[in-house]
């Protein structure tokens, strides 16, 4: 990778520096809210990055990707409740079960295209969602409180906010790097070729199904790890984590930030979660001079602003925010 001083690279570098500085800033100002918010941003950014592998590079519009957040989270929660609190057990289980589930879903869905593919991935995610709702032993739809964070005896203390934050950030960076390598490898050329023209791929001799399935499994496994992180972060896991609207959020992050771009999904996660926090406040503050107390109620409808914003990006910036940044250089 060349590191030319383009506006896009500068923005990404600044973003990464800011992310690295969050715990420092929080310590100086005694503001833990920012660490909590950005730990979440980083974890969901990692989930979105894994989705980008299949959605952005592979053209597979999975509408059930949050299911792996749930599977990873439940792996941690259930094992913790059953007395296995070692992260060396929990995290591999989270990754493995997610990978196996992805293998099942992928094997059954990847022969279909378009709307059928979207509906099958959605249906499988909803199936697991309702399975979670029926898990009486593990809190059913109320969810499961995780008393103890994953234990990494002597190595790491995840109860330490700062340590946990930097672990998440490190895993995110590793994920972004690995996927950037992967998409430019022979394997990556195959899944991108299959996105571009699957028929031609088969005509020139690629059995594309097995490559797309492998990508699907890798994406599920990484998202399962993100799920294990998320459960540790919130100390809680419930079926709501894998509701289809959560899968929709991940898609929004990828599309908003920029499909088939290394840092796009992270940028999308930062943008979406920041807007979620900022829009209600903005609406309240800007509407209160005119509408007084009603402004508080209006702020609850912040999504009405977010929707059109997203639409604008989809319609006018097909490469998402990252595409806009890349375009600055040319324009």
């Amino acid at each position: 990778m060349t590191a030319a001083l383009t506006p896009r690279n500068v923005v990404i570098a600044v973003l990464m520096l800011l992310l690295a500085a969050v715990p420092v800033y929080a310590a100086v100002t005694a503001n833990t809210f920012l660490v909590t918010l950005f730990t979440r941003v980083i974890i969901l950014g990692m989930a979105a990055t894994s989705l980008n592998l299949i959605l952005g590079y592979g053209g597979m519009v999975s509408f059930g990707h949050a299911v792996y957040l749930g599977i990873g989270g439940y792996a941690v929660g259930i094992l913790a409740q059953e007395g296995a609190s070692s992260g060396f057990v929990q995290w591999p289980v989270a990754i493995l079960v997610s990978a196996l589930f992805a293998l099942l879903v992928g094997a059954l869905s990847l022969r279909t295209r378009g709307v059928y593919f979207i509906m099958i991935t959605l249906a499988f995610a909803q199936l697991v969602y309702y399975f979670g709702v029926g898990l009486d032993r593990y809190g059913a739809d109320d969810g499961l409180t995780i008393g103890r964070r994953s234990q990494f005896a002597g190595l790491l203390n995840l109860s330490d906010r700062t340590q946990f934050y930097y672990l998440c950030l490190a895993l995110l960076v590793v994920t972004i790097y690995l996927i950037a390598r992967l998409v430019n490898s022979r394997f990556g050329m195959v899944i991108q070729g299959a996105r571009s023209n699957d028929r031609r791929m088969r005509a020139i001799g690629f059995p594309t199904f097995r490559y797309r399935l492998t990508a699907f499994v890798i994406a599920g496994a990484i998202c399962g790890l993100a799920g294990a992180l998320l459960a540790n972060h919130t100390g809680f896991i419930s079926p709501a984590t894998m509701h289809w609207t959560r899968s929709g959020d991940l898609i929004v992050m990828v599309v908003l930030g920029g499909m088939a771009s290394s840092f796009g999904p992270l940028i999308g996660a930062v943008a979406l979660l920041s807007l979620e926090e900022a829009l209600p406040v903005l609406i309240r503050v800007s509407a209160s001079p005119m509408f007084g107390d009603a402004a508080v109620r209006m702020a609850e409808y912040w999504q009405i602003v977010l929707g059109p914003l997203f639409l604008l990006v989809v319609l006018f910036a097909r490469g998402g925010i990252d595409g806009l940044l890349a375009g600055v250089r040319r324009g």
């Binding site: 022979r186 394997f187 070729g193």
Partner: peptide, 30 residues
């Protein structure tokens, strides 16, 4: 029926790759 979003060389290189062993190679820049 081509890969319209790839370069001409990328298109042909994919065809070469299809006949150069399996593509479960994840690291080197193709």
């Amino acid at each position: 029926s081509l890969f319209l979003d790839f370069t001409a060389l990328d298109n042909v290189a994919l065809a070469v790759q299809a006949h150069a062993g399996h593509s479960f190679r994840f690291w080197r820049n193709a």
